[in-house]
Write a protein that binds this DNA or RNA. Structure first.
Lengths: 159, 159
DNA sequence: AATGCAATGGTCAAAGATGGTCAGTTTTTG
DNA sequence: CAAAAACTGACCATCTTTGACCATTGCATT
């Protein structure tokens, strides 16, 4: 298995439903996984960004630390926030993809739904002769329409 | 025997009745057959296309892979037919909607998935300042992308 | 306080590990 | 022999991992 994935899993295992926050020592973790300390930064940078729904806080020097917070989840409110604030009138491909991942991680949608949504907002599905800004707008509309559907039907089961 | 055929057989042997999916490393396989890595792509491109009932998914970089999914015999054929004959390169809104309903009726997708797809191809989601013909083309791409996803994940389980 | 050092974490560019493309060459087929 | 299929290699794109060097903080010593 990829090192990055192992580290990602390790961290996500610590961040259970109960624990919204985890603190770790970069060097210790790197030591545990037998890798360069900067590898930890790579994992954080590629899998624990705000886009993914996480906030990182850290301190250097003696007694330094890295804290990872999972952004709060108040089902209904949260979903509305994601819709209005995050999606807005336009959203780039990568950000949209991260958002869908987040929806799945938080249990708003199942794996199948997530895959469908990813397919719909994928570059292939949207490969048209129109400017990128228009694609971002289209992606936003697609996401909103699909998320509305989720909120109406399937989301009810979860929350 | 031709190299391509040997590689094709090799892969198909891994994809037994039980195994609907196989993962391989391009370079390893090329090494095993003593051929150029791109030969693998050639085989995949000529013998494992969606038209043949397969779906390919891959990832580059360290820990990269190529995954091959076999669509259910029946499911694959029917989906393919729908994709090529009914969807094509463009499809009007109403027809697309009917198609999705059919997909649900036939059990290819669940109610949730159907609703998501309907939302994605709905006029609201596609309300853009582009000509109707382009919208039909977009709808076709959306449908194809989503149906491929269905074939990859859920379709295999069903049929 | 001021200084210096040890303990942390951060950055970034380079190297490593894979897979993708495509044009051109060789082989097979009709 | 011409067309189609098979094959290759050079070059590209993407993702991961590492290491050298930098920044910050706390503490011990002046």
């Amino acid at each position: 298995m990829r090192l990055s994935d192992a580290i990602e899993q390790f961290i996500k295992t610590m961040l259970t439903q109960a624990e919204q926050e985890v603190e770790l020592k970069r060097n210790e973790l790197a030591d545990y996984f037998n890798c360069a300390p900067s590898q930890i930064n790579y994992v954080l940078a590629t899998r624990f960004t705000p886009d993914h729904g996480y906030i990182i806080e850290s301190r250097r020097g003696g007694g330094g630390y890295i804290r990872i917070f999972r952004m709060g989840q108040d089902t209904g409110e949260q979903l509305l926030y994601l819709l209005n604030e995050r999606v807005g009138d336009a959203i780039p491909a990568l950000e949209a993809s991260h958002l869908v991942m987040q929806l799945e991680e938080r249990g708003f949608i199942g794996h199948c739904e997530a895959a469908l949504m990813q397919a719909a907002i994928s570059p292939q599905a949207l490969s048209l002769p129109i400017p990128a800004t228009m694609k971002d707008a289209l992606r936003a509309k697609l996401l909103k329409a699909m998320m509305m559907e989720v909120a109406r039907n399937c989301g009810a089961q979860k929350a």
